[in-house]
Amino acid sequence: MSFGQLPYDLAHLLGGAVLLLSFVLLYQRRIAAVINAFATQGALLALAAAWQGYVQGAAGLYVTAAIAFGAKAVLIPFALHRLVRRFNLQRGVDPALGIGVSMIAGVALAGFAMLVVLPATAGQRALAREDLALALSVVLLGGLMMITRRNLISQVIGLLSLENGLILAAVGVAGMPLVMELSTAALVLMLAVIAGVFALQMGESFQSLDTESLDTHRGEGE
């Protein structure tokens, strides 16, 4: 199972593309572009899951792929676009940390993920280890995005892309039960619904989705 075998190479490359999209999410400034990048990431994740289903011969992974595509590449981006239009959020995403600094932090996190995963999984197949490292990088970058953005929509996208990383790690492992997949997918949909309701409430109370306006209600920063 070394390099040079097409099934594993392609799975690996798709994982890399998902990670690349995580960096695109960090790099984009306009909220509509962030949502589009997230939709692309969802589509790529669906492709990765379908490819793993084909390679492993597991029909359950096709269901995962269909759910990932339907929810993350179509439904959630569509709902987010509607939210953006409703609250007139066409302007930038107000990063709490500069774009350049967050990109550097992202690369550092990806390197950190490699350093953590590779020694911990010694003795396994080289490609499985690197896939796991890629997935962990996506998770960490999602977390980074939640920390460095002030806008509610960007934070929700950070959380959802973190979950993309979890799915990416899960589909790479052979023999994951379908029940787990379904429950994770249901969780994500619930998450999106709650985030949507929260955003509507917040938008009506504060006329903005900037989470900074919540600080005073927590007794911080008067």
Binding site: F3, G4, Q5, L6, D9, L10, H12, L13, G15, G16, A17, L19, L20, E130, L134
Partner: peptide
């Protein structure tokens, strides 16, 4: 060498 993530980057 096959397809490599690093080459993609």
């Amino acid at each position: 060498l096959g397809l490599r993530v690093s080459l993609g980057f």
